[in-house]
Design a protein around this nucleic acid. Sequence first.
RNA 1: GGGCGAGUGGCGGAAUGGCAGACGCGUCGGUCUCAAAAUCCGAUAUCUGUGAGGAUGUGGGGGUUCAAGUCCCCCCUCGCCCACCA
Length: 834
Amino acid sequence: MQEKYSFSEIESKWQKHWLESKAYKTEEGSSKPKYYALAMFPYPSGNLHMGHVRNYSIADVIARYQRMQGYNVLHPIGWDSFGLPAENAAIKHQTPPADWTWKNIANMRRQLQEMGISYDWDREMATCHPGYYKWTQWMFLEFYKHGLVYKKKAAVNWCPSCATVLANEQVVDGGCERCDTLVTKKILEQWFFKITDYADVLLDDLDKMTGWPEKVKTMQRNWIGRSEGVEVQFALEGRLEKISVYTTRIDTLYGVSYVVLAPEHPLVKELVDGTEYEADVLAFITKMNGLNEIARTSTDAEKEGLFIGAYCLNPLSGKKVPIWIANYVLLEYGTGAVMGVPAHDERDFEFATKYGFKFHAVIVPVGSSPEAKDQPLEGAYTGEGVMVNSDTFDGLSSKEGGEQIADEAELLGMGQRKVNFRLRDWLISRQRYWGTPIPFVYCEACGTVPVPVEQLPVLLPADVVFKAGENPLATSASFIDTTCPKCGGVARRETDTMDTFVCSSWYYLRYADPRNTELPFSETAVDQWMNVDQYVGGVEHAILHLLYARFFTKALRDFGYLKVDEPFQNLLTQGMVCMDGAKMSKSKGNIVSPEVIIGKYGADTARLFILFAAPPERDLEWSDQGVEGCYRFLNRVWRLVAQYEPLFKGIQTEASASSDQTGGWGSLDAAGKEMRLHTHTAIQRVTVDVGTRLNFNTAISTIMEWVNALYIYKELPTANAEVGREAVEAILILLAPFAPHITEELWSELGHAESIHKQSWPEVDEAALVQDEVTVILQVNGKLRDRIQVPADISKAELEQMALSQPSISEWIKGKAVVRVITVPGKLVNVVVK
RNA sequence: GGGCGAGUGGCGGAAUGGCAGACGCGUCGGUCUCAAAAUCCGAUAUCUGUGAGGAUGUGGGGGUUCAAGUCCCCCCUCGCCCACCA
């Protein structure tokens, strides 16, 4: 065999072989249990970056490991290929988004193949392919049919200078990313998914998800943001309408100094109509509308408000309360109206101080003096306590009093308990070209009409013009002009496309049945594969993508298309790849290109380093020298095998190992025994690290240790050649998921015809782990003083006796009284003296 | 402001409550060589001691325990996410 490790030759040879033989194709009709390993599919930006390398290396190790454990593994890849960058590139380079995208996909596919990731390439798919987005449209219609899609007016980010709609990501510090013009709001008719119908179940089911990091579950909980409170009505003075206010602190009802409406609240215009306040109020509303959401609701923005000249009445005290509007009240949450209780809410305190409201405490801390209720406040007291200045509720705890007020309000018909969520419905309309067209038409006679399923897909047209400020789809007459599916009359197509998060909310289901032309997926295929056993991706998707995917799965389950109610059994959120302490990014210029690294050291080295440098959840600091170290290690493995290979000629271990109960290892000398102990300890540790803990860094270090130790046995006596072969082969198999090419090459050099990746994961031979002697630590008062070799089966009493008689120990306990002796068999003896 | 993490040698990082610093990088020394690289072997927390050894040591302070990097309480620093949600 060759002296030198020529990675590029080896890697391209095996990559070609694996591709041509479809080595990692998912087995059809297999009797093996299934395992679905999935990495979040990439956006085809053009080139892999180190974050991708990390993501796909982690998932690949898991997929390869589970295959060797005897599972039929589904490990697919695809492309999240709709989105804004393609459109920007189209404008910049005058190329159609599709061309740009498919070119990028071709390049990144090649790069993934050069990494040796074990995908089933027959299941590759792209969300921008009509064969895929047809079914995204189908999903949309299905959700519509079940009342989970609706249309309403909503604000979008609008750049007045470019005359275009901007995505949130395109708004930088409140300005347009291209021209820096202050972004304003514009009201458009938009499509929504009614995800709020699932708020409760999306929240509750998080408790069942034991395979998800606590961190991600917390983020989702906070995002859904359930709160329990009371909706309470304030009657308007001199009018019949009431203002509904939502509060989580009904116990502070007697402390209300004012009521604030969101500027957009429908009552506002009515209340000021024809009054002296009208002009000022309308000006204020216009000003607020001019600001985008981010600028208006940022915490640092000063609270601004305006009295609108009207009053309402506190439902319990009957006290007259002025009505204001203010920037910090949001129409979208609760009822769009809040009660101002300056004494017990920090925002209200700030607002009241600025505008000179009078207020007093209605809750005092438990144990306060009787005078406390009348003392001026220096800040809001937001804790619980005892009610004061609250009429008949005085003296009750705030908790109990709150309940009683809620009861009273419900009894009087002036309020009702209510659960609110922060989660809003999901706005999916994008005034963009490169996305899934929304399958609706507008007919003068029939109104808004869904495109019938038989007419799907609604294809993206090619005859569009890309210019800033206009939705390209609106420039295509062939697209817009259509006939109404209902009446056959003249109709116009919807020109909005869907948020790309819609495409990625169901792709994991399509992998189960990627070429189905009748349905998005067959029930049997999805039942066979779902759910995903291990999902791997960046924590940046912890909220949106993972929540939307959960929503889709639950809804499709309710529609009857699948049985599982959660898509992802286990979730691994990998850390960022950093350099010089900051995330690798183009703008910071701290990028290391995977292609360069692979060209210089090979894919195996790149994979090994990125898995070795840190545990997967943690951020990883890139180190060129660390890469060098991994390269050296693979060279070391190469030389090790090259050295032993002649000795192994004609020796097989599999046969002898299984020939009898002692494994055929009965008559080993001490060196042979020690070697097997090492081999099987390594197998045990790597199995736990890869299979259970997903700590690849320590798995690799275990293999490194064993390789280092094997160098000591270099002058291996022929008598132990079998043991040596067992050791070397075990190392190759353990290393195979991490470094698939070099191990495949060395495995074949050792005379095996079948791929190493088709081998079973080695089993631990418990007999090999049995030791005659063990090292025991000796402590005095918990401090390490000595260590001794003792027979493994020594009794507790004997061990204690032996420990106490050690000169090193008697030295330390001389002249002192032995209070206690703690003995942990096989591990330590701790002598406690005084 | 809220939530969640994390603080261990010169660096990345290891340690089911039981030998702190595995493994890798770096550094130093040796091997080989005409020489260099590569390779192989060895050393490498700090202080102290010629040495065996001893003392100290996991952000800081307290506590629980025979025994704490690990568990509990308080504080500091950094990172991430959310951020006027009534």
